[in-house]
């Protein structure tokens, strides 16, 4: 996908992102995707940001001081403190919020998912799950139609597929 016009009016959008926060933001901006993403989010299109795709929803990141994020959610992404090793490159369990929302419909408490990251948001009013690695950090967020996962559902085996299936159901407007 090289041109924002190719997207048309999707029923949902997934924004992946690996690597450097600043590089991801630049890549998004360069081809006019930043405006498109903001328009889609503003237009209530279900949106899922994965890993750096979630981080970009926030305002800033310690990783790239010269860049700003999409600013859809308030907060700054920072390097994980007190971890024995970085990146966190492993499976870990989620502590789901009482109202973790539609993305976790049918998912048992403390699901195991796969993380690969050195940066995270430590707290958010929009957190739907937390995780612990050296310190407690936000593992997923939801604000209206906007979802984000710091972990990789596409690499989290059966549980990850259930989460993605839930997102697809959201895009189809189905009741979960």
């Amino acid at each position: 996908m090289n041109d924002p016009k190719d997207i048309g009016s999707p029923s949902g959008v997934v924004l992946p992102g690996v690597g450097d926060f600043g590089a991801c933001m630049e890549a998004l901006d360069e081809r006019g995707f930043k405006t498109l993403v903001l328009d889609l989010i503003g237009g209530k299109t279900p949106f899922l940001g994965v890993c750096v795709g979630m981080q970009m929803l926030f305002e800033y990141s310690e990783e790239s001081q010269g860049h700003t994020g999409l600013g859809v959610l308030p907060g700054t992404v920072r390097k994980i403190r007190n971890a024995r090793r970085l990146p966190q490159m492993q499976w870990n369990t989620l502590e789901l919020h009482k109202e973790s929302g539609e993305l976790y419909a049918g998912i048992d408490d403390k699901p195991w998912v796969y993380f690969v990251h050195s940066y995270a948001v430590t707290s958010s009013a929009f957190a739907t799950a937390y995780c612990d690695y050296g310190e407690r950090f936000v593992a997923s967020v939801q604000f209206a139609n906007v979802f984000g996962t710091q972990y990789h559902p596409e690499k989290s085996s059966k549980i990850g597929l259930s989460i993605l299936t839930n997102f697809v159901a959201i895009t189809e407007g189905r009741k979960l």
Binding site: V18, G19, D20, P87, M89, V116, H117, S118
Partner: peptide, 8 residues
Amino acid sequence: AKTFGSQS
């Protein structure tokens, strides 16, 4: 690492 990130 610069192109795809250290994690890769």
